[in-house]
């Protein structure tokens, strides 16, 4: 990393209008301290992203000479039904899984915010799904949904919902549900933990006052908890949305995008083309995903700002 100082000094020049006083020695040292950070992020995140954006404008296929084609890959994506199916899946997945996970997480957080015996243990246990790699979670749920002997069909039978085993991963709807449930298992804890911290930050005496005012449990939640939790709620929603948009691991393992591509996310579509040596096309798909993430982030920041003022 001999050239690490470069991004830092660039940064300084960009940030420093001419009439500012010169930097103090501490500030110069500060930029030196930040330079490895900028170096790593620049070399292994920013440049790759820019490289991918550039590559999306090329016909970059492993067995052909590279050729500039401008927006040809995007035009091909536009005409590709599997692209639209992936966009639809990604959007639907965000719309269903994020609210579900945040609601579930809020429920868990509300429970864990109350004092009860063994609370510490329960709080520790919700970290377990979070700590398991998503790819491993995908494997566990692949077995859960196994047609012949999986736990899901066992439960259906046990709860007398259906005697006939259900081919979970065999229809668009049930495969979608299967993915949502597996993802909810893996990521709800994250939402719960963040929201729990948000709840804990609400001063206790506010509730005390409300109790004096005879406000019921529900009223207290609506008028005190929810408004005060809003900023944290928005942050949680933002994090979860960004993560849900880029879902890959669980789907790759659990459904492989099936049946018939019904559960293929944009990340999967892009990876599939990379793996087949079709880099330009895959890059174009990841650029679209990247833009979707940017739009989502901006939308949340807007909402957040709006709430503050």
């Amino acid at each position: 990393m001999t050239r690490d100082h470069r991004p830092a000094s660039d940064f300084r020049q960009a940030r420093q209008p001419a009439r500012r006083p010169p930097l103090t020695r501490d500030q110069v040292r500060g930029f030196w301290f930040l330079s490895p950070l900028f170096g790593f992020i620049g070399l292994f995140i920013l440049i790759p992203v820019l490289g991918t954006i550039a590559d999306s404008l090329f016909r970059d296929i492993v067995y052909l000479p590279v050729r500039f084609v401008f927006l040809e890959n995007f035009r091909a994506l536009w005409a590709d039904p599997s692209f639209w199916s992936a966009v639809r899946f990604s959007a639907l997945f965000v719309l269903v899984s994020v609210p579900l996970e945040v609601l579930l997480g809020l429920g868990i957080a509300l429970v864990l915010n109350e004092p009860f015996a063994l609370r510490g243990w329960v709080r520790a246990c919700i970290l377990i799904p979070w700590a398991i790699p998503a790819a491993v979670a995908g494997r566990i749920f692949q077995l859960v949904y196994n047609f012949s002997y999986g736990a899901a069909n066992y439960l259906l039978d046990l709860l007398s919902i259906s005697r006939e085993p259900l081919n979970w991963l065999g229809s668009d709807l049930s495969a979608f549900i299967a993915v949502v449930v597996a993802d909810a298992w893996q990521t709800t804890p994250f939402a719960a933990i963040i929201l729990l911290a948000g709840l804990a930050a609400i001063p206790e005496d506010l509730y005390g006052q409300a109790k004096v005012d005879q406000a019921g449990m529900v009223a207290r939640f609506r008028h005190i908890t929810l408004p005060l939790l809003k900023p944290v709620l928005i942050v949680t929603l933002l994090f979860r949305t960004i993560q849900a948009l880029r879902i890959f691991d669980i789907i790759f393992v659990l459904t492989g995008g099936g049946p018939g591509g019904a559960t293929e996310s944009l990340s999967m579509l892009a990876y599939r083309h990379f793996a087949a040596g079709d880099f330009g096309y895959g890059s174009a798909a990841s650029v679209v995903l990247f833009l979707m993430a940017v739009v989502a982030a901006i939308a949340y920041v807007r909402v957040g700002r709006f709430q503050e003022t």
Partner: peptide
């Protein structure tokens, strides 16, 4: 063919979609 993998992936999706009865064999 050099792009056989891409051909096969398209076929896999559409055949699988037909087997899941998302659409008819002719449509697939």
């Amino acid at each position: 063919l050099p792009n056989y993998t891409l051909i096969s992936e398209i076929m896999q999706r559409r055949l699988s979609g037909a087997l899941a009865r998302d659409y008819s064999p002719a449509q697939a």
